[in-house]
Design a protein around this nucleic acid. Structure first.
Lengths: 365, 365
DNA sequence: TTGTACGCGTTATCAA
DNA sequence: TTGATAACGCGTACAA
C-alpha cells in the first residue's frame, strides 16, 4: 500500500478509485469513455471525483497514452485583423472540447513555418491547422508524413495535404473587378502590400479579369513587400496617380489600403466614387461606416476558423468529413465607393444606405 | 538491459546517453544545465543527441519534474487591436525561450476568467499573465495562492498580486482632456463603449478633469456596454449631438469610436476641428493618416506584452525585478483633429503634417 | 562532476 | 464490464 496522497498535495486517480471502490483503471475509463462503465460504477466514480475535486494530470496522461490533446496552429500574423478573426473562431470552437490550442506566428515566412512545424510535430500534436497552401517542400513532406489530421485554411487549391477550408482569392478578385466593370469603370488600378501568396492570387485574379476585357496595363499595378497599413494605402495610391492620372477605379488588396486610398482622395479633393471608385477586400467593420461607405469583398473569417477547428476535432475523433475541401465563398458587398450611376445623390440621403442583402453579389458555393 | 528503442520509434534520453557513454542523468543535465557537465562529456552528449536527432519528451519531463514550461495568458479579447499588439509582444518575447504560451480568451468576463484561472492553475503553469486588476475575490485568492510568478498587464494600481506592468488610464484620460482645455475647448463630450474597467477609468479621468475646471455635465457623457466599433462611434456621437448640440470637443474612449465620430461629422458636414475637436485613445495606425489626422493617446502595447513576458521569464528563473510595478506611461499625440488655433489652414498644406516628436505631451515615467 | 534508485500519475495490454 | 501488471520517458534526491 503506497502513499494515499501525492507529494504535491494533489488528488490522484488512485484516490478517486479508492473512494469509489473501484480499480484505478476503471476510474480512468470513466474520464475517457464513461459509456464503458456500468451505471452503478459510473455514478460512484463521478461522485468520488467531485467530492475530492479531482483534476486529471495531463502530463501523465500524455506520457502514458503517447499522444497529446494539443492542436497546433500556425498563422502568419497575430495583428492582422484577418487572422485575429480566424483565431477567435478557432479558440471558440476548441473551447469546451478536450483539446487545447498551441499557437505560433510564422511572420509570413515559410522557412519559419517549416521550423515551427518541426517543433510542433516533435510533440505529436492531435491535429494541426496551417495557413495557406504554399509550404516549403520540406514542410509539405513533414505534413504528409504526420500521423494526425491537418487542415489548411484561408484558401483552397489542388492537392490538399489532408483537409482544406477557405475560398478562392483569385475568383474573389475577379468578382470585384467584374463589379467595377459593371459599374462602367475601365482603367482600374491595383494596390497591394505584403504580397503574400493570397494577395498575389488576388493580383492574378485582377490581372486575368482586366486582360479578358482587353484592358490590362502593367502600369496600373502598384505593389510592395512592405506590411500593409492605412498610411501605406495612401502612399501607394499617390504613386499610382503620379504614374497614371487617368485611372477611374482602384482595387485594393485589403481594406486598410482602401481606407488609405479614401483618405488620400479626400486630401487631394478627388471625389469618390465620381472621379475614382474604390473597392477593398475583407470587409472589415469600418468599411460600412466610412464616408462614402466602401465596397469590399466579404470573407467568412470567423467561420473559417471555427469550422476548421470543428472539422479537425471531428477528424481526430475518427469522423472524417465526406468532402475534405470546403469552399466558404465570398460576397462582393457593393457600397457607395463604387456605385457610379447614382453618385450624384447626396451622401446623406437615407436611400444611400446599402441594402446588403439585395445589392450583393454572393458566391456561396 | 531494457529495450533500446521506444515502441513509437522515438529516440529516448537513454539512447543518447548510451551512445555518448554516460548515464542517462548526465545526458538529462546536458539539456537543462549544460554548464554542470565537464566539457568532455558535454560535447559527447551534444554530438550523440544531434546524431540521433533526439527531441525531449515534454510530457515525461513535466510528469517527472512536477512542473511545466507553460506560461498561461488570459486576455479579454482576441480581436481588439489593443490585445493583438500585446499578444504579439508576448509571443515575440517567449520565442527562443524554453517556455510556451497557453492563451485563453475571457471575453471580458471576470467569471470566465475565474473559471479559466482554475483550469490553468491545475496544470501548474510556470508563470501567468493576466489582464487588469479587477479579478473576482476568488480569482484573487487563487492568484495569491499560486506558486508561480504572475504579471498583471494593461494598467497599474495598488496591491499587485505579484508583478504589474501598464499605465494609468485615469491619468492618460486627464492628459487628453488637459490638451483639449489647452486648445480652448470647454464643452467636451465623452463617448465610450464596452465600459470594461479600463474604459471606466478613462471616464473617471475625464470626469475628474472637467470637474476640476467646473465644467462637468452628466449630459455630455454617452456610454454603452455594447462592444466597440467604428459604426457605434458614429451612432453614440449622434446621440450626444441630439442631446447636446453645443459641444465643441469629443473625447473617445478608443480610436475606433473616434474614427466613427469623424465619419459622422463628415456625414453631417461638421468641420473638424473647427466646429468640433476629436481625441481618441490608443493611437492605432490609421489615426495618423485620416483626414484630418486624429489626435490620440499613444500607449505602449507591444512593449507591454514583450516586457511582461520577459519579466515573467526572468522571475520564473529566479531573477525577480527590483521594482515589481512598471509604469509604461503614455503620450498624447497631438494632431489636426484637436488643433483649433491653426484650423483655418488648408488640410493639404504640408505644414499640417504633425511633427510628433515636437508636438507631443509625453508622460514617460 | 557523475551516478543509483526510485517515483511522477496515467493508460495500454491482456486476461478474467 | 473489470482488473492486474507493466510500461510511458524523464527528473529528484541523495550519495559517491
Amino acid at each position: 500500500m503506497g502513499r494515499k496522497r501525492t507529494k504535491s498535495g494533489k488528488i490522484r486517480l488512485a484516490e478517486v478509485a479508492e473512494l469509489a471502490g473501484v480499480s484505478p483503471i476503471t476510474a480512468s475509463r470513466f474520464f475517457r469513455n464513461p459509456e464503458a462503465l456500468s451505471v452503478a460504477k459510473r455514478t460512484r466514480v463521478e461522485s468520488a471525483a467531485r467530492e475530492l475535486g479531482y483534476v486529471p494530470n495531463l502530463a501523465a496522461r500524455a506520457l502514458a497514452s503517447q499522444r497529446t490533446e494539443v492542436i497546433g496552429v500556425l498563422i502568419p500574423s497575430l495583428t492582422n485583423n484577418v487572422f485575429s478573426d480566424v483565431l477567435r473562431g478557432i479558440y471558440d470552437a476548441s473551447e469546451g472540447s478536450r483539446y487545447s490550442i498551441q499557437l505560433s506566428n510564422t511572420r509570413y515566412s515559410i522557412l519559419q513555418e517549416e521550423k515551427l512545424l518541426r517543433l510542433f510535430l516533435a510533440q505529436k500534436p492531435a491535429g494541426l491547422i496551417v495557413t495557406g497552401i504554399d509550404q516549403t517542400a520540406e514542410s509539405r513532406a513533414m505534413l504528409e508524413a504526420a500521423d494526425c489530421p491537418i487542415v489548411q485554411i484561408m484558401e483552397i487549391g489542388p492537392n490538399p495535404v489532408d483537409m482544406m477550408i477557405g475560398f478562392s482569392h483569385y475568383d474573389a478578385a475577379r468578382a470585384a473587378i467584374a463589379h467595377l466593370f459593371a459599374q462602367g469603370h475601365r482603367r482600374i488600378g491595383f494596390v497591394g502590400a505584403r504580397m503574400d501568396p493570397r494577395v498575389q492570387r488576388r493580383l492574378d485574379g485582377y490581372a486575368a479579369a482586366v486582360k479578358d476585357a482587353g484592358l490590362f496595363d502593367q502600369r496600373l499595378i502598384v505593389t510592395t513587400a512592405t506590411p500593409t497599413s492605412v498610411t501605406l494605402g495612401g502612399a501607394l495610391f499617390a504613386d499610382l496617380l503620379a504614374r497614371e492620372p487617368d485611372i477611374d477605379a482602384v482595387f485594393c488588396a485589403n481594406d486598410d489600403l482602401a481606407l488609405g486610398v479614401l483618405f488620400e482622395c479626400r486630401r487631394r479633393e478627388i471625389a469618390v466614387p465620381d472621379q475614382i471608385a474604390i473597392v477593398g477586400f475583407n470587409d472589415l467593420e469600418f468599411m460600412a461606416s466610412s464616408v462614402p461607405t466602401l465596397t469590399s469583398v466579404r470573407t467568412n473569417r470567423y467561420e473559417m476558423g471555427s469550422t476548421a477547428a470543428a472539422m479537425l476535432i471531428e477528424a481526430i475523433e475518427g469522423k472524417r468529413p465526406e468532402e475534405p475541401v470546403l469552399d466558404l465563398g465570398f460576397t462582393v458587398i457593393e457600397r457607395q465607393s463604387s456605385q457610379t450611376q447614382r453618385s450624384a445623390a447626396s451622401p446623406r440621403a437615407p436611400e444611400w444606405v446599402p441594402a446588403v442583402q439585395n445589392d450583393s453579389v454572393t458566391n456561396d458555393p
